[in-house]
Amino acid sequence: MTQVTRLLIALAAVCAGLIHLALVVGSPVPIAVFAAAIGTAELAWGLITFVRDRIEAPVVVLSVALFPLVGWAAIVAAGAVSGATEAAALPVLPLGIAAVFDLAIALVIARRLRDGERKVIRTTGAEPSAPRLLIPLFIGSLAAALLVTPALAATEAGAYAQPHGEHDADFVPQKGDPIQLPDEHGH
């Protein structure tokens, strides 16, 4: 695996983790616990993968990358069968975008496992030149931002976010004043 590939799947893991953590807000407790656990694991693994030059336990990584896909499918299927409204209320856009990131991780790891790297996937090859490293990372970061931003906005946490440009003097508490949040127009 090249350094660029390792860094891009680490970025994908961080993006999926952020989306799953944003889904915690407003979700029913069992779904919130599931999303918090998966999001934390993805975020931690992504950050560790940024720092290290290898991927430890790729079989576990593959399982964790596929677990949210199977979990969300099970939740939606159970909700459809039982008629539970909580499962029907899950936001499709964030789940779909997180699934894209998780599938990208799973595909890269599965490819490396197929090549026989079971215990550790090491970064191979010489260190790339700056353009060969920075251009793919810039494109990957741009794509991640273009996908993660609408996904986060489509979550309950994004619905309550203060829109840009709408901060005024009433939003910032003055010394000694109790904090009073501005009206959020229907939130």
Rank of each mutant, 00 (worst) to 15 (best):
A126F: 05
Q162I: 00
L134H: 06
A144M: 08
L142C: 15
V120K: 09
G158K: 10
E127Y: 15
P163I: 00
T149H: 06
H164F: 04
I135Y: 03
R132S: 10
P136V: 14
A153I: 06
A130L: 15
F138G: 15
A126Q: 14
P136H: 10
A159C: 03
R118Y: 10
K119H: 09
R114V: 03
V148K: 00
A130E: 10
V120M: 07
L137M: 05
T123Y: 03
E127K: 09
I139Y: 11
L134D: 11
S129C: 07
A154F: 00
L113G: 12
G158S: 06
A126I: 08
V100W: 09
I139W: 07
A159H: 06
G158M: 11
E127R: 13
P150C: 13
V108R: 09
P150Q: 10
L147D: 01
A144I: 05
I109P: 03
I109Q: 12
A130M: 13
E166Q: 12
R132G: 05
G116V: 08
I139T: 10
A153N: 12
T155F: 02
R118W: 12
L107V: 13
P128K: 12
T123C: 09
A154H: 01
F138D: 04
L147R: 01
L133E: 00
E156Y: 04
F101E: 07
R111L: 13
R112T: 11
A153T: 03
A157G: 07
E156W: 01
A130Y: 15
I105Y: 01
G140H: 11
I109W: 13
S141T: 15
A159F: 02
E117Q: 11
A106R: 01
Y160W: 11
L147Y: 01
A161E: 03
G165R: 02
S141L: 15
G165E: 00
L103D: 13
P131L: 15
F101S: 08
Q162F: 09
A126C: 08
R118V: 06
V120N: 07
G125Q: 02
K119I: 08
G158E: 04
H164Q: 00
A143P: 14
F138H: 09
E127H: 13
A130P: 07
A159T: 01
T149I: 08
